[in-house]
Amino acid sequence: MEPIKRLRSTTVVMPSTNIDTDQIIPARYLTVTTKTGLGQALFADLRYASDGTPKPEFVLNRPEAAGSQILVAGHNFGCGSSREHAPWALVDYGFRAVVSTAIADIFKSNALKNGLLPVIVDPTTHRWLLEHPGALVTIDLEATELALPDGHRVAFPIDGFARHCLLHGVDELGYLLSQLPAIERYEAAHGR
């Protein structure tokens, strides 16, 4: 995984609450056996008409959305299924952070493992971001702060271990494998 320290990007805003994993990537796109190319299927039912053409009114299809790495979404983003295809699709599309007032547990865990920053902000900051789509925002993982265009900074919570792994590009499997002696001791002591 690529280390990630700092992101500076305009935002794309999807204000809906409870954007679930079936909206992020519908189940019919889950029959893949690799991770690549899923960006095409991101928000498919919202993004494309039934004949496959892009719906011009959907936010990702607007010209100003191009190149944005930060998605600002309504409360409880990513609820629903454990499909890691959801963060895979967001990352493959080009997003590196999701900002909301709440992000569902399994989605958050999956996002962290794929270099997609889950950024939880207070309701006031969130409202400002929702009301200012396209704002140029900086997310500083080292300082764990999000900076608004006027320079106002808000801290965001992130698990220290996950932060360490993201900053240094450490892969968690490597860490777990280094625990194998302890795992073997546990198995012997607990009859497993």
């Binding site: 629903g80 454990s82 890691e84 499997l173 777990l176 625990q179 194998l180 795992i183 198995e187």
Partner: peptide, 29 residues
């Protein structure tokens, strides 16, 4: 995510993502 079902028997059961499926396959942890 519906692994929570198995909690009906008093197990601690929960859903994980595919990266974690790999972790468990490789380390059982």
């Amino acid at each position: 995510s519906h692994t929570s079902t198995h909690g009906a028997l008093g197990a601690l059961a929960f859903g994980i993502g595919t990266t974690e499926v790999g972790h468990v396959l490789a380390t059982q942890c």
